[in-house]
Amino acid sequence: MTKKIFNNYCDKIILAPMVRINTLPMRLLALDYGADLVYSEEIIDHKLIKCKRIVNDALGTIDYLDAEDKVAFRTCDIERDKVIVQIGTADPERALKAAKLVEQDVSGIDINMGCPKGFSIKGGMGAALLKKPETVYQILTTLTSNLSIPVTCKIRCLSSLENTLELVKIIQSTGVSAIGVHGRTKDERPQHKNRNDFIREISRYLSIPVIANGGSGDIKCYDDIEVFRRQTEASSVMLARAPESNCSIFRKDGLLSMDEVISDYLKYSIEYDTNINAVKYGVQHMMGSYQATPRGKACLRSISVREICNLWDLSDYYDEYNKDSISPSNSAES
């Protein structure tokens, strides 16, 4: 049975899962700045099942390589007790097979039941599961009955509070250790007001920890995180858009400048041999409107991590780490 240690998800500030953003450098950066837990980007069960587990002594990491020998998931001892892998799935047995593969290297498994994107919906995953309570129950009970680590799921609200409460009651009955709730429906977007009242009622209704999500639009500094938690009465708070722009939102001592955060991110990207596409994508989101500046445009034109590092005066740092081949397969995160 799953070890349902509820304290693992109480009074925590968490980096929410974000596709293409939550590679190892971003997760480690969030932990450095003060996050208590970090989620991986969503990994589809079909992809994860086909991966092979490799101990990468050169980097000090555990790599899960896909069929093309590209890194689908990379982790290390630093985050071992704090990283949760999010899986996209629509099938209980496939979900279990994928979770079993990474079970020994992570602190928890989360099932994506809230993604509103067409790819997830068409595959019966993400928000499509919100209208399939039987499948939700089957997936989660299969995992909680067969894993040695905590299982959680992340949902969006249904259009009515009553229906949302019915769903979370079913989820709680599966034995999950916590539930993450994004306070918008699958059809609502960031410009729509987050349903903090829904999350508050869910928090009052359930006996397991509730992780509030969707409040980044109102979170401008560290103290705002606690304001959001109080408004929702949730056990913990999960952030996506705020750290995507400036990961130092997790710092109790205040925000760092964009350049400081990017420099810290690039150092981890160098140390963990991160793919140019992932690095560029992360830096672009941190730059925001500054992508229109000369340095932003130069970043967009870059075709190597070293070129990006040079823009932040880190070419010497890059060269020092790359004196020798640091990865036998040169299989950086994609």
Rank of each mutant, 00 (worst) to 15 (best):
S203G: 03
I225K: 11
F119I: 14
L101S: 02
T89S: 15
S334Q: 07
Y318G: 02
N112W: 09
A240V: 05
D273P: 00
S177A: 15
G114S: 10
P116D: 09
D187L: 04
K122L: 05
Y272M: 08
V283I: 10
M1Q: 07
Q138V: 00
I155F: 06
E260V: 11
F228Y: 15
R301P: 00
C309Y: 09
M26K: 13
D264P: 00
I149M: 12
S329G: 04
K50R: 15
A90D: 15
I170P: 07
Q86K: 10
S325F: 04
G118V: 03
R200H: 05
S289M: 06
T152I: 13
E307Q: 15
D319C: 02
L239M: 13
N330Q: 12
S327C: 15
V136W: 01
I171Y: 03
K186C: 05
F6G: 03
Q86F: 06
P17S: 12
Y318H: 10
S304H: 07
R156V: 12
K169Q: 14
R27I: 07
W312F: 15
A99P: 05
D36F: 01
Y33T: 04
I170V: 15
N163V: 02
K169A: 15
Y281A: 11
I179G: 10
G288K: 06
A90F: 11
T61M: 01
A298H: 10
I13L: 14
I276N: 05
D273I: 00
V151C: 13
Y290I: 00
